[in-house]
Write a protein that binds this DNA or RNA. Structure first.
Length: 474
DNA sequence: TTCGAGTTGTC
DNA sequence: ACAACTCGA
């Protein structure tokens, strides 16, 4: 080995320079660093990145490219099977080591194994995404957690993650290897261009993430406890896609939050970070989480195969206003308010009795923040087949939820404009509105806005019956 | 073994 | 008030 031989820094879902353990370790070798990103659509199988996330990826990579260029480094872009690409890169650059971040995704863990075996370089997997290593949080008997609260308490008992590390002062640039052009990757939508709403909503990249975090912690943290449940407002952090792509680390957020005054808002925000952590923990210990219910009796659930209903849900045409508003927000902005995610998920699973995996797949393709662990963990949570001891009778009523969290109907008005003129009294249940209220608002059910595709009371009763049945069988 | 407790609800 | 189970200590 000569000192001019490079080490490879393989960027994955950690597209930042600050608090990046693998990048830091790579620079500390003293050898030149070759930063690489590989667009790999074969290794993930059915969990290849969805359309909305690709839009984000494009812009995040552009930001990372620019940040590295400021330090005299070129980000090498390649497409293909990661193991093949890395093996070739190691050969052609004579790299001695590969540094990369870890992931709970089963396919990524398998890939790590393959890469480690397929190249001659030493392989170093570091923790860049979670606060703690999933194996370091253990029950008293050494097992993994399956319930959130004891898991969160165990994390809190550790007193928080290590302080984040700064970006490396200097990155010794390696000789540039062959690279593809980001613009050739086709990550952005062609015609039609559906990304207008995304462009208006987001600033991908490490700088955008830090800006967003700063704005939220300065203005949003104190009102977070109540504000985060109001979908018409901007009370949530909107940090999820930045976290998804690792443009900011959970440890950075933890420490930034702790620089702010203590209070209910801060406490709840920390607990939200721990939900993300919990899902990663769940997936790490249950690799089948995205596909199969954790509670095996749910395999016997009499799910309905109802393509028209699924399509109506996806398009925001169910006739249930807050559900439709949420689904349209998702389609237009690549994101949905968390409160509304629970409502639309509960509606799909319980009122329509469509398999949670169908909703999971749709979210995967349309959310800019789609994360395998969080997506699967939360869909299972709503379905009641996951880790939480969720009572099967917890079924969100979209009308009551609307009245509670979108009382004046502004959220519905914004995303379902055909109901905009409807009185707040009726906006979450136009089917009970008197004829004159509908007419004066320009609403004609079945024409300008659909009738509900399921009767809420009947849907609820049907779900309760089915849940009771599968439970009694076991 | 017992016992406390559970993000997000509904009627 | 309900209805009710499982986890974790």
């Amino acid at each position: 080995m000569t000192i001019s031989q490079p080490v490879i820094l393989w960027f994955r879902n950690d597209l930042r320079l600050t608090d990046h353990a693998a990048l830091l370790a790579a620079t500390e070798t003293g050898q030149p660093v070759l930063p690489v990103f590989i667009l790999d659509d074969t290794s993930p199988g059915r969990w290849a990145m969805g359309g909305a996330a690709r839009w984000w990826l494009h812009h995040s990579l552009a930001a990372l490219q620019a940040a590295l260029a400021d330090r005299g480094c070129t980000l090498i872009l390649r497409r293909g099977d990661s193991a093949t690409v890395l093996a070739e890169l190691v050969r052609s650059t004579r790299a001695t080591d590969i540094f990369t971040g870890g992931s709970a995704d089963p396919w990524a863990r398998r890939l790590d194994q393959t890469v480690a075996e397929a190249t001659d370089a030493r392989f170093h997997r570091m923790r860049t995404r979670t606060l703690f290593h999933p194996d370091s949080i253990r029950t008293k008997t050494g097992g993994s957690y399956s319930v959130y609260t004891p898991f969160a308490n165990a994390c809190l008992a550790l007193g928080g993650p290590k302080p984040p590390s700064p970006a490396p002062m200097e990155i010794r640039a390696a000789d540039v290897a062959a690279t593809e052009r980001l613009d050739d990757w086709g990550l952005l939508p062609g015609k039609p261009d559906w990304a207008g709403g995304l462009r208006d909503t987001w600033t991908p990249g490490e700088a955008g993430a830090m800006e967003r975090a700063d704005a939220f912690l300065t203005h949003g943290l104190t009102g977070y406890a109540a504000g985060r449940d109001q979908p018409a407002g901007d009370g949530t952090s909107m940090l999820s896609p930045h976290l998804r792509f690792g443009e900011i680390s959970a440890a950075q957020l933890w420490h930034l939050a702790h620089q702010r005054p203590n209070g209910k808002g801060r406490e709840i925000f920390i607990r939200e970070l721990l939900w993300r952590e919990f899902c990663a923990h769940l997936l790490w210990h249950n690799p089948g989480l995205p596909e199969a219910p954790l509670k095996p009796e749910f395999a016997k659930m009499p799910w309905r195969d109802d393509k028209p209903a699924l399509t109506a849900w996806q398009r925001g045409q169910t006739g249930v206003p807050i559900v439709d508003a949420g689904m349209r927000q998702l389609w237009r902005t690549g994101w949905m308010h968390n409160r509304v995610r629970m409502i639309v998920a509960s509606f799909l699973i319980k009122h329509l009795m469509i398999p949670w995996q169908d909703g999971e797949a749709w979210f995967w393709d349309t959310l800019v923040d789609a994360d395998l662990a969080s997506n699967a963990g939360n869909w299972q949570w709503v379905a009641g087949c996951g880790a939480d001891a969720a009572p099967y009778f917890r079924i969100f009523n979209p009308v009551l939820q609307g009245g509670k969290f979108d009382a004046d109907g502004d959220y519905v008005r914004h995303f379902v404009p055909e109901l905009a003129k409807l009185d707040a009294k009726y906006i979450h249940a136009p089917w009970v509105a008197p004829a004159h209220a509908l007419t004066s608002a320009g609403v004609s059910l079945g024409k300008t806005y659909p009738h509900p595709i399921v009767d809420l009371a009947q849907g609820r009763a049907r779900a309760l019956e089915a849940y009771a049945k599968i439970r009694s069988v076991t």
